[in-house]
Computed example of a mutant assay.
Amino acid sequence: MAAAIDKAQELADERTISVAAGDVGGQIFAAGLVDEVAMDVVPVVFGSGRRYFGGIRGQHLLEEPHVVVQGDRVLHLKFAVRRRTD
């Protein structure tokens, strides 16, 4: 995973790299390679579904949201990933 992110950074130069949620995004997140998480919350409740970051293990903390934008039936949030200090 780290090699893929390194290559993406090389190709992106100074631009931002985005990674989708799901199993692959969750693996990149769990490896500590994600700086920020963006979520869009809509008023729909499904009875089942998939985990946002796939099946990652352990606890991963986010900071308080530093971007909160209220849209039409959607709430856009951005969180910095809290880095472990241990």
Rank of each mutant, 00 (worst) to 15 (best):
G22F: 13
F79H: 13
D13Q: 13
G54N: 01
G32N: 05
G54C: 02
A8Y: 13
A30F: 00
G32P: 05
G49F: 15
Y52L: 14
E63H: 05
E36Q: 11
L77A: 03
L62T: 09
V81T: 10
D40Q: 14
A12E: 07
E63L: 02
A30L: 09
G32S: 05
V67T: 14
Q9F: 11
V68R: 09
V81G: 01
A38N: 10
Q59P: 03
E63I: 00
A20K: 06
T85R: 12
G54A: 06
H66D: 15
V45L: 15
A80Y: 03
E36K: 13
V81Q: 01
D23Y: 05
S18V: 09
V42I: 13
A30N: 10
V41C: 15
A30V: 00
V67D: 11
S48E: 11
V44N: 07
R50A: 03
V45A: 14
L75P: 05
F53W: 15
F46L: 15
E64H: 13
A80T: 04
L33M: 09
V24M: 10
R73H: 13
L61R: 15
I17V: 15
A8N: 05
A2E: 13
L75F: 03
A38W: 07
P43W: 15
G54K: 02
E63S: 09
A80V: 01
V34D: 04
E36I: 10
A12F: 14
V44Y: 12
L61K: 11
H66R: 08
V41P: 06
Q59N: 09
V34F: 08
V44P: 01
L77D: 03
L77V: 07
K78F: 08
Q9P: 00
V41Y: 03
